[in-house]
Amino acid sequence: MSPIVELKDVRKSFGALEILKGVTFGVNKGEVAAIIGQSGSGKSTALRCMDRLETIQGGSMVICGHRLQDSNIDLKALRRDVGIVFQSYNLFPHLTVAENVMLAPRLVKGIARAEARTIAEAVIAKVGLREKMDFYPEQLSGGQQQRVAIARSLAMEPKLMLFDEVTSALDPQLTGEVLRVMEQLAADGMTMILVTHEMGFARKVADKVIYMKDGKVHEMGSSDILRSPSTPELADFISEAAEH
């Protein structure tokens, strides 16, 4: 299997503060990778670098064939291949659910309105919100908004989906409905990288678990490492997470 995501010794600083201190890992096509770790370990920054919301300062990062360290990178092509979902949903509040989903296909791919609507119907049905097509974001619960955000990314048919703590702002019940959508995506074969605090979900769905600590990958392996960690730091992290 060919890696669709390949990070080699990636470094990133904000001013004098070094956040990523040489991160190396790869994710293959169709895999689900969960990045876990304490706040400040650099996991969200690593994810944001993968969609070039942040630029890296050292090492190399190849995402779906795009070399992110290149200054002449084709960002439009990168963003066609990569979808990202944020903790704060970031739906466009002045547009309906359908319009939110149709916007990028229409503007970026130049798809006609009627056809874009068909695409929107399909992806919105996939996240279970067919009856909310013409609602505005403020009329939806947090979990529903997050599912729309996922649909909005799916409408662009990405090869890779990034999830940045997408359930952190939700209560347990709403978390469940979002995780079920993500689980279905994983079952459909989508390549996914998620930064998450949901250990149960990582254990169940992730093919690869990456434990980050102090800007580096501290331990990495199949989801088995969550049951039998080999470093004491990961063991501590898991037991702390279990207490919450």
């Binding site: 969609d51 963003r79 990569v82 979808g83 916007l103 990028a104 909005r152 990314s153």
Partner: peptide
């Protein structure tokens, strides 16, 4: 909002 638009390729 800007990040979301940027990531969608707008």
């Amino acid at each position: 909002q800007l990040e979301a638009a940027e990531c969608l390729g707008l």
